[in-house]
Structures are given as structure tokens and as C-alpha cells.
Amino acid sequence: MTKQASDTDPLIIAKRVFSSRLIIGTGKYKDYAENAAAAEASGAEIVTVAVRRVNLSDPSAPMLVDYVSPEKYTFLPNTAGCFTGEDAVRTLRLAREAGGWSLVKLEVLGDEKTLYPNMPETLRAAEMLIGDGFEVMVYCSDDPIMARELEDIGCCAIMPLGAPIGSGLGIQNPVNIRLIVEQANVPVLVDAGVGTASDAAVAMELGCDGVLMNTAIAEAQDPLRMARAMRHAVIAGREAYLAGRMGKRLYADPSSPLAGLI
């Protein structure tokens, strides 16, 4: 069923073609094995990954790439934890050297408590990265003007937050997400804030091209089952959006004909 929907409706980011519209993070899982199983269950083709120092006291510790293979998934290196443009650019240059990937997820944070993006710094970092040959998917606020500026400077996907990272609060400002979707000529993905399947469906019903999530799956009581739920929710939301929902009315309208009543 996934196939039928996606064969005619692929997600295209920076000329790369994907059939799944769900991108998942690889943090907060019990271990890499559970992470790999959740990725499989979610049907995701893109996983976002962090860049960190090798633990010198235990260099033989399990590595993400041994469980979630870059041969099977498109790795999307992120700049989680970066608070300046320079840190973000430095991190992604290292990521490109480690794996050779130019498609990246930029996030430049502005506040430790909310992890809200610092937008002037995000714009500056995006310009530096694009100038350096990166294809930038960008985590941003849900401000349509900022989203437009990021697209204008060449970002290949706009990824507004639905709610703060890891909050699970769902889409807090559906009006802004819709405004961003309507004006964009590149894919728009809700990045952060999804808590459960209905949140993902709401994002997709708003016309988003995809959803990126991590905690909603990793912190579910049963991550594998939630990964499956998210897979279905994203497909259901996309199909509902493409189908075009019925109009809303204030009063009832019977589904059975009134003619011929006894």
C-alpha cells in the first residue's frame, strides 16, 4: 500500500527521490539495535544523525553505522547542539569528510531551555553552507517570512518546528505551517513537536511534504509499534490531503436519502 501511494507521489529533496515521507532521528533509543528495528518498522529512508567526539577511553564501543547502515538509509547529518553558525559549519564539514554526504540538516539553536532556533544565525549558517556546496534542509521557526528567506537563499527543504524539540506537544500553530506550505516551492517538513500519530497526520493534512521526528518514537512505551503507527499516520495524512477533505458545516446532513421514507 505504501508502494502504491508513493509510486505516483514521491518525495523529492534536492533531486533525490524517496518513497517514504517520514524521516526519523536516531537518538534516545535504549540501544542501537532498538534504533535499527524502529527505523525498519517506520519505513523511513532518511535518518538524521549527530556528529560527536569518539570516546577515546572506549574506542571499540558499538557504532551507529554498524546497526543503521548508510548503505541502506540516507544519512542526514545534523548540527544538533550548535549555537553559532561557525559551529554548525564546522560540524557539517566534518560530517561530509566522515561520510561524503552533502545533504544536511542545519539547526542553530538560540536557547537551551526551548531549543528554539536562532533565525538570524540560521540564515547566516545556511548561506555559508550553501556557498560551500552543501544541500541544506533547515530547521526553523514557523515564521513564513523567515521560511521564505531561507528558500530564497537556496535551502532545499524548509523544516519548521511544530512545537519545541522533544516536547511532544503536537502542531501548535497550524495556520503558520499552512502559510509556509502555500508559499514554498521546495519541500516543507514539520521537524520537531510531534508526540503521537495524529500529530503526524495533522502535519501531512496541512499539506506538508513530510515529517521528521525522534522522541515520539524513541520515548514511546513500545517504540517499534509507535514507529509503525507513524508510518501509517504519515501515509494517511498525505492521502487525506491529496484526496481533499469534505467541507465543514454547522448542522447535520444525512447520508441516507430523504426520499422514499416510510
Binding site: G27, T48, V51, R52, V65, G99, I165
Partner: peptide, 11 residues
Amino acid sequence: IEIVQFIGGGA
């Protein structure tokens, strides 16, 4: 010298 690798992480 900095030696880095990919680890699990979302945002």
C-alpha cells in the same frame, strides 16, 4: 586534534 564519528541523534 578532534576525532569525531556519527552517533544517534535527532535534533
